[in-house]
Amino acid sequence: MGKGKEIVCFCEDVSKEEIVKAIKMGFKDLETLKRFTGISTGPCQGKSCLFQVMRILAQMEGKKMEEMATTTIRPPARPILIGALAEGETRAGEG
């Protein structure tokens, strides 16, 4: 890793510099910024990176964090084996 390089999204290997560049290109909507850079689309599904990126976007757009909205949060909370879902095992604890 180069000196001074700040990684924002570890799953997809995206640096702060790349986020700043994308925002300057015009991806100022968190939803499109996510799709352009790939942040929040890896195995952690945004748990470690989304707020970092929101903070950078807020700072550059002169907004407060309270004014920012997250992207749509989608299931599952953690990756699940397709085999388990196919067998209906994810409902084992029900009832």
Partner: peptide, 8 residues
């Protein structure tokens, strides 16, 4: 079946 579903 060995793959993880990550997002739907």
């Amino acid at each position: 079946k060995f793959a993880n579903l990550m997002r739907q």
